[in-house]
Design a protein around this nucleic acid. Sequence first.
DNA 1: CCTGGCCAACGACAGTTGTAGTAGGACCTG
DNA 2: CAGGTCCTACTACAACTGTCGTTGGCCAGG
Lengths: 135, 135
Amino acid sequence: MPPRQTDLSDAELEVLKALWDLGPTSVREVMNRLHTQGRELAYTTVLTFLTRLKAKKYVTSKKSGQAYIYKARVSREKVTGSRLSSLIEQLFDGASAPLVLHLVQSNKLSPDEIGELRRMLDDLDASPADAEGDD
Amino acid sequence: MPPRQTDLSDAELEVLKALWDLGPTSVREVMNRLHTQGRELAYTTVLTFLTRLKAKKYVTSKKSGQAYIYKARVSREKVTGSRLSSLIEQLFDGASAPLVLHLVQSNKLSPDEIGELRRMLDDLDASPADAEGDD
DNA sequence: CCTGGCCAACGACAGTTGTAGTAGGACCTG
DNA sequence: CAGGTCCTACTACAACTGTCGTTGGCCAGG
């Protein structure tokens, strides 16, 4: 297995999500957060993940008093987007349309959501994509 | 790490995809397929994956002459769907709408695709989901 | 100053994954 | 029948992952 040392693992993502939710905070807080979400991880386990996240550059930390405060360095959107892209790549060879179609067809969307979706499509027509960096 | 022994790994999925594309076939054919796709794996590596896929019940095999013929036991749709669900769970806590919105907003869809999407939405309204097994 | 709490750095360990080499049976071909 | 050629079964192995336990430092109470 080629060394990556850079991708987010599932457990790491969970921790990162907690950090996003909480904003900059301590290991203990992150742990508490996870606990209230039913994720019972040992303190050291959380610490491990945070440490790995730091090694992989997903978070930064600075000492504050006795403990460290961890802060996400990547936005939820960024990560979400790239995970999504990977999946699309993997499952649909890079084309996102099939994914959307798949979602729509598997009728997992509520009428409300469908309405919103339609509204968004209309919006798109109106204001044609203002050249956002294509990641 | 709790033993799973049941989930598809990325590499396994690649092999399974080749198998879907080819239909029931031999290790060698799968390997050739992967090669033409630029994925240079050793014969034994492909065999390993197919073996693991079999252990995980994603494929079956039956001897035919000297070699075995492997056949996918799960449909592409099934796997695609569950992978997608996992991602949605992971990224959007189970709500698929945000994903669709995300996709639409990140304007990765061509006008044509948007048109098709809109058509599909209309269709949905017209023929309200005829009780498809909700997986 | 000793003690009980926190805290973070390490080390550990088993299971998963990606990749492949080797060994040994079948089979075809002289 | 000896030599290639295929094929599968095993074994291997390092990196990655999920989970912690242990250690030793630092600080507030008694």
